[in-house]
Amino acid sequence: MNIFRLTGDLSHLAAIIILLLKIWKSRSCAGISGKSQVLFALVFTTRYLDLLTSFISLYNTTMKVIYIGCSYATVYLIYMKLKATYDGNHDTFRVEFLIVPVGGLAFLVNHDFSPLEILWTFSIYLESVAILPQLFMISKTGEAETITTHYLFFLGLYRALYLINWIWRFYFEGFFDMIAIVAGVVQTILYCDFFYLYVTKVLKGKKLSLPA
């Protein structure tokens, strides 16, 4: 464990908690893409099946359980409890255009052709594009609540910190995982446009609205 990975995990945890609290406290999921949240629940489910097979550390297990719990709670709030506030008309990204190619790629490019490894690879590839429905929804509505932009900022920051973590681990441990690195670079690049708007607008107290 290094400071970049720890900060990255805490940033990821912050994002997940911020979103869940925002929906729970405001009793509304307006502006939130339910599709992205379903994809994240799928990412955690397929990646953390090793909860059942191996124990790495208390930290590892605890964080995985929290991530899975919060992501399912968020999906539950959006599609069941607060369904009336779900803005389905703007959450129209065709997720099958993500899941099918990602599923296919996981079969073609992986470290090991075993079920758990294929699912982990699928999860890594899916996570890199899972935010697209949310970014697409913001481009359609033309704006995002400030709390939603903070959620996106921490979510984007987490994988950017993981990139530094991988540089650190390569240099000090000779460890590197090309699949995770390439997917992580793609994932972080997808946030660049948002990061620019976040820094130039939200951090200056303005509302995030498009066109920029």
Partner: peptide
């Protein structure tokens, strides 16, 4: 395979 078998990252 430069990856450790055990996936220790989240």
């Amino acid at each position: 395979r430069n990856r450790t078998d055990v996936k220790d990252e989240l």
